[in-house]
């Protein structure tokens, strides 16, 4: 069986990820592509450095696809995330979802990216003209205490 979730330092291929979810039962294929943005709140990014705890991150991506398949049983999901140095406009993440009808594909795709930003151990460091900083978007209820559903 083809891989459903992976992390790589190689460039991501949009076509390769998307075609893995195309199938006869699907009438909708939704591909979310997260790219490296040049300006954030007026500040210019030169490039991003992504780091991961790969073994755990791939497990967490798998967990997200399982959560999605529970909530949208007809969904087929593939997620790929790139790490290492990424330049402006490079593709950082691709989420491909296929479902029989379009509404589920939009909802499931949105769910995946929000969960990635909550529970998958991947970090990015912004490099600006005048400095650098590790970014943390983590939505925690209480620092250091994982949400109940994150512990299984």
């Amino acid at each position: 069986m083809e891989k459903r979730c992976w992390i790589t330092s190689e460039p991501l291929e949009i076509e390769d990820v998307t075609k893995r979810v195309i199938r006869r039962e699907a009438g909708a294929v939704n591909t979310f592509i997260g790219t490296v943005r040049e300006f954030t709140k007026g500040k210019r990014t030169l490039y991003l450095q992504y780091e991961t705890y790969k073994e755990m991150a791939e497990k967490k991506l798998e967990q997200i696809t399982k959560e999605m398949e529970r909530q949208w049983p007809s969904a087929d999901v593939v997620i790929a995330h790139r790490v290492g140095r990424l330049e402006i406009t490079d593709v950082a993440v691709i989420i491909a979802v296929s479902t029989p009808h379009r509404n589920d594909s939009y909802e499931a795709s949105r769910y995946a990216i929000e969960r990635i930003k909550e529970i998958v151990p991947i970090w990015k460091k912004e490099h600006w003209e005048d400095g650098e900083e590790w970014i943390g978007d983590q939505k925690e209820v209480k620092p250091g205490v994982p949400l109940k559903e994150e512990i299984k």
Partner: peptide, 26 residues
Amino acid sequence: NEEFAPEDTTITEGDTIAFIPPVSGG
């Protein structure tokens, strides 16, 4: 061992413990 765990978890021999700063993937 690659899974989030509550802080009252007792560590056993050979366990790998990871400190996960606020994540920022995507």
